[in-house]
Nucleic acid binder design. Sequence first.
DNA 1: TTAACACTTCAAGAGATATTGAGATATGAA
DNA 2: TTCATATCTCAATATCTCTTGAAGTGTTAA
Lengths: 109, 109
Amino acid sequence: MNEAEVLTMLGALSQQTRLQIVRFLMRCGDTGASAGEVGQEVGATSSRASFHLSALENAGVITSERQSRHIYYRANPAGMGALVSFLLNDCCDNHPDVRACCGVVSSCC
Amino acid sequence: MNEAEVLTMLGALSQQTRLQIVRFLMRCGDTGASAGEVGQEVGATSSRASFHLSALENAGVITSERQSRHIYYRANPAGMGALVSFLLNDCCDNHPDVRACCGVVSSCC
DNA sequence: TTAACACTTCAAGAGATATTGAGATATGAA
DNA sequence: TTCATATCTCAATATCTCTTGAAGTGTTAA
């Protein structure tokens, strides 16, 4: 994961509506949720939800799959894992105090 | 760490110059670096460096301490740890695939 | 006190991003 | 085919953020 990808992902997450969307989709698990359900959950119009879902998908935080007339969005654990891994390893230079805070015991990814 | 604090921290990190500053200060460790040194490292004017350092300090990513005419900035591992912890626990709902990616074995903070 | 240095704050302009509503596209049912 | 539903795209506006340079604050030394 290079710096540009990390910046895109951090930027995508640093917005209230989008952070809410990610938290919701993480709770939804493999089932995922349609754009309409996502919009309803976070109190957004469909075009606003669509805009934010695009940003999140573009950043690699979520994925989408069309099923008949619905498009189901799902959280992408691998993407979030890569971000966390970058923060711990590259950004924080494997600082033990940072790793200790989250129960990280071995070096990673 | 509440949602507003997380958003502030993610926003602070989602900018190239500021991400560079954090990485540099993490490498500097307890010694830290002055605003001038930071600016030189990331290729920023003094006012630009000061602007970004303020944003990072305000977000809790770094700390500052005046020593005579210099102000020394240091990375704040506890702040970064809290952010990573939030991402793993709250945001990702303790999703095992996310935790696995970084060698996280126990639940945390 | 005066001067030099290190850093911060302020204001202004440029650029990026968020929100909204209207219209377009895609799918499935009648 | 026609209609209804689900979602996306587009343009306009508003808001936020970054950068720059000038002016201000605080510290040390002469």
